[in-house]
Computed example of a mutant assay.
Amino acid sequence: MPPVAPPSPLPEFVYKIAPETPPSPIPDAYPLSDLDRQDGFVHLSASWQVPITADLFFKDTPSFWIIKLRLSNFPSDAVKWDEVEGTNGCPHLYGNFGHQDVVSIKAFHRPEGQSWSHVLQGQAAWLE
Rank of each mutant, 00 (worst) to 15 (best):
P2Q: 15
P3K: 12
V4W: 03
V4R: 10
A5Y: 11
P6C: 04
P9M: 11
E12H: 13
F13K: 11
V14H: 09
V14A: 07
Y15I: 02
K16M: 07
K16Q: 05
A18K: 03
P19Y: 06
P19V: 10
P19W: 03
P22G: 12
S24Q: 13
S24C: 09
P27H: 11
D28Y: 02
Y30D: 07
L32D: 10
L32F: 05
L32G: 12
L32R: 15
L32W: 07
S33Q: 09
D34G: 11
D34Y: 10
L35C: 01
L35A: 15
D36K: 01
R37F: 10
D39A: 12
F41R: 11
V42N: 04
H43Q: 03
H43K: 13
L44E: 04
A46P: 02
S47Y: 12
W48P: 00
Q49I: 04
T53A: 14
T53Q: 14
D55V: 06
D55P: 12
L56Q: 15
L56S: 14
F57C: 03
F57P: 03
F57S: 04
F58W: 02
F58G: 04
K59R: 15
D60H: 12
T61P: 02
T61N: 10
P62H: 07
S63F: 13
F64S: 05
W65I: 12
W65M: 09
I67H: 01
L71V: 02
L71A: 02
N73F: 02
N73P: 00
F74K: 01
F74T: 05
F74Y: 03
F74P: 06
D77G: 00
D77C: 07
A78N: 11
V79Y: 03
V79N: 08
D82V: 13
E85Q: 14
G86D: 09
G86S: 05
N88V: 08
C90D: 01
C90P: 03
H92M: 00
G95C: 09
N96T: 15
G98I: 08
H99E: 13
H99G: 13
D101Q: 14
V103R: 10
I105P: 07
K106G: 02
K106H: 10
F108N: 08
H109W: 10
R110A: 05
P111I: 01
P111E: 04
E112I: 14
Q114V: 03
S115E: 02
S115Y: 01
S115A: 11
W116E: 08
W116V: 00
S117H: 13
S117C: 09
V119C: 05
L120Q: 03
Q121E: 15
G122D: 09
A124V: 14
A125D: 12
A125Y: 05
A125H: 11
A125E: 12
W126Y: 13
W126C: 02
W126K: 10
W126N: 08
W126S: 08
L127G: 05
L127D: 08
L127W: 06
E128D: 14
